[in-house]
Design a protein around this nucleic acid. Structure first.
Lengths: 202, 202
DNA sequence: TCTTGATTTGACCATCTGGTCAAACTCACG
DNA sequence: CGTGAGTTTGACCAGATGGTCAAATCAAGA
């Protein structure tokens, strides 16, 4: 293993390649379904070489999840209490949808983890996520109190946004099986916009 | 393997026990994450004994998926073109939500499969599911033409229903991490009802 | 009860998989 | 250059896993 000095050029390149490869593999096959060899080959390294950069398969997975969690929660973080309520929420939703489109691997990485009970990120859910959601829930509730948006159960509103937007990445095969040639996101954008505009209008 | 006569009492009991156990295990760990031993133990059998009833792990999985697909699609099947449009759709949604509550293992079994690209049920999606959806889409579109419900992209309407209802089963850990003690389905029922009533009102 | 097919199992096998290690190789820099 | 740290790899290991098989046990009808 490299000493803990500043990472060399090679270390940077290889660690990045490994994480990129691991994202491909883990998001497609889940943790148990992925092998170190697959990741190594995809990263253009031999297995022992890969394990020179990360102590274990688990470590790669953990690092991936924690380094991507921030990205994943960023849109919600950006929800601004000083903006226009309806526009803030709608633009949050569009950003989430855009992430589903542009970062489907990340979405599926989390989906895989969650469906199987989130054994490795349970803590992050109960802490980081819960905290962030509660913070934003206060804002949503205030907007409801002020009559700026319709009164709804804020948690379930949040769930519906996650469910709807991530569905397009997580269950892409199914969506494509139904839509055929049609581009999923072409229709999805306007659809969710309409949906939440109607739902949130007081 | 048993001859292909009428199944004996023991065959019935053991095959049922195996499928029940496999549903538990596969839905919790995915296909690759599950082992034949786990399933055997959960079914109260030895591994060779289990493999006396099913030729392989894959065969159990396949049989589970195909035998549950029907159950899974039943609510949509029941959508009646002669009923009241709004009530038909809303009751479809409530039935889906109820299935999420009562059959979460089945939901997660499919979710696991779908997230990983549905390698084993791709065909069923493009055939059975696609066909059923298209059939019901015709009804939805007619209702829209008649002004009975709001005009929406019917496929995306369908996706939204699946996403929202199955979210509660598939991502139950996340939902519970946010809700804490609160019963997810307590709030979910009214929420989705409100949502689709608003959305579908012309 | 006896017989025959159904059921069960311990022992076993081949393969896969995560991980180790010592030896070889490469690179940056004095 | 030369040298020491950083990098790479072939060979290997132990445990897990899907699956097989012959032999033993059981169950039900004649």
């Amino acid at each position: 293993m490299p000493k803990d000095r500043a990472p060399t050029r090679i270390q940077k390149k290889n660690r990045a390649a490994i994480l990129e490869a691991a994202l491909n593999v883990f998001s497609a096959h889940g943790f148990r379904g992925s092998t170190v060899d697959q990741i190594a080959i995809e990263a253009g390294l031999s297995k022992p070489n890969l394990l020179y950069y990360f102590p274990s398969k688990e470590a790669i997975h953990t690092e991936l999840l924690s380094s991507l969690l921030e990205t994943w929660l960023a849109p919600l973080h950006d929800l601004d209490e000083n903006g226009d309520p309806m526009e803030e929420i709608l633009s949050y939703i569009q950003r989430k949808l855009q992430m589903s489109q542009e970062l489907p691997r990340e979405s599926r990485l989390f989906a895989n983890e969650l469906v199987q009970g989130a054994p490795r990120i349970h803590e992050a859910l109960s802490n980081d996520l819960k905290e962030l959601v509660d913070e934003k829930t206060v804002i949503l509730t205030r907007w409801m109190d002020q009559g700026k948006i319709a009164r709804l159960h804020p948690y379930h509103l949040m769930f519906s946004i996650w469910a709807l937007t991530q569905h397009y990445a997580d269950f892409e095969v199914q969506v494509r099986a139904i839509l055929g040639e049609e581009d999923p996101f072409e229709g999805a954008g306007p659809f969710v916009d309409t949906l939440y505009r109607k739902l949130l209008t007081p």
